[in-house]
Simulated scan of single mutants.
Amino acid sequence: MRIPLIAGNWKMNKTVTDAIELVNEIKDVANNTDVEVVVCTPFISLVGVSEILKDSNVKLGAQNMHWEESGAYTGEISPTMLKDIGVDYVIIGHSERRQYFNETDETVNKKIKSAFIHGLNPIVCVGETLEQRESGIQREIVKNQILKGIDGVEEKYLKNIVIAYEPIWAIGTGKTASSEDANEMIGYIRNIIKEKYGEEISEEIRIQYGGSVKPNNVTEIMNQVEIDGALVGGASLKADDFRKLVDF
């Protein structure tokens, strides 16, 4: 049985002081639940938040990483640095990274492989733009992102990949794909994995929905049979909202 995963992506929000205050308010949200909970803070807050979460069931995630262990990559953070401070998950290939920072399927692939080598669990983001959906090529786009992203990843790691389907047109816009549309695409993604790697792996991989998930729609989204969790942006920045998401 797949355990639902609710992950908060704080993006470029919260000072270190703010982050510590917020995580102190939410660190007990996973104590009495069958849901796995992750908070993905800005790099600057990871160390402080890690200390607070040591005695909590809430897992720590980063929002990005470089694929190399070290080197002349000014401004980058390596997987070894993340692992050393207790990071469990790392978001890879978020649409904002692809759009603003030239992330490609090839760099996503390198990062996924490096994450597993260093004991980190990747949350791999895929999704189409509104133009692509209106052109009817959303399935082709998502399929290419998945197959190129996980190409060459050892099968022993595949079950630990988390895929986050995030229709780009529904991120930060207030728009949300209908729960039925999200469920259909996530079912399609699971079928891609099944065709490529077999039913056993496809049934183990968790696939989240990401795109303006809020307390008022999370129950409907999570009641869909194929959806295994949510990658949450703005609603993860308020303790009360995040608690409601976890308690869907």
Rank of each mutant, 00 (worst) to 15 (best):
residue 104 T to H: 05
residue 180 E to C: 08
residue 161 I to E: 05
residue 49 V to Q: 04
residue 122 P to Y: 03
residue 170 A to T: 15
residue 75 G to S: 05
residue 58 V to S: 05
residue 125 C to N: 06
residue 46 L to T: 03
residue 115 A to T: 06
residue 97 R to W: 02
residue 168 I to Q: 09
residue 147 L to S: 09
residue 149 G to F: 03
residue 51 E to H: 12
residue 71 G to Q: 03
residue 69 E to N: 15
residue 66 H to D: 11
residue 155 E to I: 15
residue 41 T to H: 05
residue 108 V to N: 13
residue 160 N to M: 08
residue 115 A to N: 00
residue 82 L to S: 02
residue 98 R to T: 04
residue 85 I to V: 15
residue 69 E to C: 14
residue 150 I to V: 15
residue 55 D to K: 08
residue 58 V to K: 03
residue 53 L to N: 00
residue 49 V to C: 00
residue 134 E to W: 13
residue 166 E to M: 13
residue 132 Q to P: 13
residue 174 G to R: 05
residue 87 V to T: 00
residue 85 I to F: 07
residue 132 Q to V: 13
residue 177 A to I: 11
residue 112 I to Y: 06
residue 101 F to Q: 01
residue 98 R to D: 02
residue 76 E to I: 07
residue 150 I to S: 06
residue 75 G to H: 00
residue 172 G to I: 02
residue 130 L to D: 15
residue 41 T to L: 11
residue 145 Q to E: 11
residue 129 T to D: 11
residue 97 R to G: 00
residue 59 K to C: 09
residue 182 A to Q: 14
residue 112 I to M: 07
residue 91 I to L: 08
residue 108 V to M: 08
residue 178 S to W: 06
residue 179 S to Y: 10
residue 94 H to N: 05
residue 86 G to D: 05
residue 53 L to A: 02
residue 89 Y to C: 00
residue 112 I to H: 01
residue 128 E to I: 11
residue 42 P to N: 06
residue 46 L to I: 04
residue 112 I to R: 04
residue 127 G to Y: 09
residue 82 L to R: 03
residue 68 E to A: 14
residue 104 T to A: 00
residue 131 E to C: 13
residue 102 N to M: 13
residue 50 S to I: 06
residue 48 G to W: 07
residue 38 V to T: 05
residue 119 G to A: 05
residue 156 K to M: 11
residue 163 I to P: 09
residue 117 I to M: 10
residue 160 N to S: 15
residue 173 T to M: 11
residue 183 N to E: 04
residue 43 F to C: 14
residue 66 H to P: 03
residue 170 A to P: 15
residue 73 Y to R: 06
residue 155 E to C: 07
residue 125 C to V: 08
residue 172 G to F: 02
residue 105 D to Q: 01
residue 99 Q to K: 11
residue 142 V to N: 09
residue 116 F to Q: 01
residue 170 A to Q: 10
residue 162 V to C: 03
residue 152 G to H: 06
residue 118 H to S: 00
residue 65 M to P: 02
residue 146 I to R: 09
residue 104 T to M: 02
residue 104 T to G: 00
residue 53 L to K: 00
residue 130 L to F: 10
residue 80 T to P: 07
residue 126 V to L: 14
residue 162 V to L: 04
residue 76 E to C: 07
